[in-house]
Design a protein around this nucleic acid. Sequence first.
DNA 1: TCTAACGTTCGATTCTTCTTGAACACATTT
DNA 2: AAATGTGTTCAAGAAGAATCGAACGTTAGA
Lengths: 167, 167
Amino acid sequence: MKNTKTPEATDSLDDFQRECVDLFMNAASSLSLPRSVGEIYGLLFSTEEPLSLDDVMARLKSSRGLTHERLRWLRIIGAVRKVSVPGRRKEHFTAETSLRRIAEGYIRDRIEPHLANGQNRLINLEGMVGAVPERESFQRGRINQVMNWHKFLTRALPAIKAIPGKF
Amino acid sequence: MKNTKTPEATDSLDDFQRECVDLFMNAASSLSLPRSVGEIYGLLFSTEEPLSLDDVMARLKSSRGLTHERLRWLRIIGAVRKVSVPGRRKEHFTAETSLRRIAEGYIRDRIEPHLANGQNRLINLEGMVGAVPERESFQRGRINQVMNWHKFLTRALPAIKAIPGKF
DNA sequence: TCTAACGTTCGATTCTTCTTGAACACATTT
DNA sequence: AAATGTGTTCAAGAAGAATCGAACGTTAGA
């Protein structure tokens, strides 16, 4: 008879893990992220030992493709780290618990690119001002407004790194 | 022959408006909000005079129900203000241009409720610690971590109101 | 080199969310 | 009160996003 089970660690979740999975699933959807992102993060957050892709897949009963996709996203953002487990060939993953680092990654990958793009669009907008002369001053005012936002955000975002304290 | 057009103001957008609509539509979807939210905000942002629900509907060629729904959402968040236009019966709307106020509204309505809820869940989580004795210290560490996040966020969010400057 | 284990990609399917349009409710004017 | 203008709600259809699973690549060890 062949052994079809993983060597250690059960496939089912304990209460603590179930509750964490649920907690982060909710958090994810209230940030408008896919539920499965929160689900996976919650599992890793509540599990002491690093898990492989197959471990995660088995415990959350989701597909290989999806699990892979979400783990990759979490890794890019910096919410999950790849760790090598001695004696095992598979890649293993563990949760990053520094909110600061996660926020930095999220900002870097999801917000800053849009800010940079917005810069170009602003320049573009300026070329359209004054097609109707009586609206020119209103339109210039609006562009100014957006430039202020832009300036504020490009200053405020890096400031997060400078906030003291552990979080 | 009956007059089926609105008394003043054309139904079509000028270049400046079109560009703003597009700009905010993109911004909305990169914040994972419905595109139509950005579309409506962009129109109001780029239009000097307040617009009625029917004005918005006509110019964006979208349905009554949707336009109503989105305008209400924008109003609740505080990104759009209701203004009364003398001599007109309909309600009219105009864009709030203070990023600070918009952010405050968004935080108040979409983030703080989840934080409050998270508080309860944390208490709940604490009851589950130690079902397996050897995991107890790990689990306590995690709960501590989340409590730190919570503490940080409940301090950081109100701090936004205190940031000096116009934005 | 061959084989087996593992990681990655992608078309098809399922599920959510957005959007529409028409019905309803409420207020204002005649 | 009737008629008209206006605001709100909701069931059903359309569009889009999340998910699955099988096929394909890649790497490690025999």
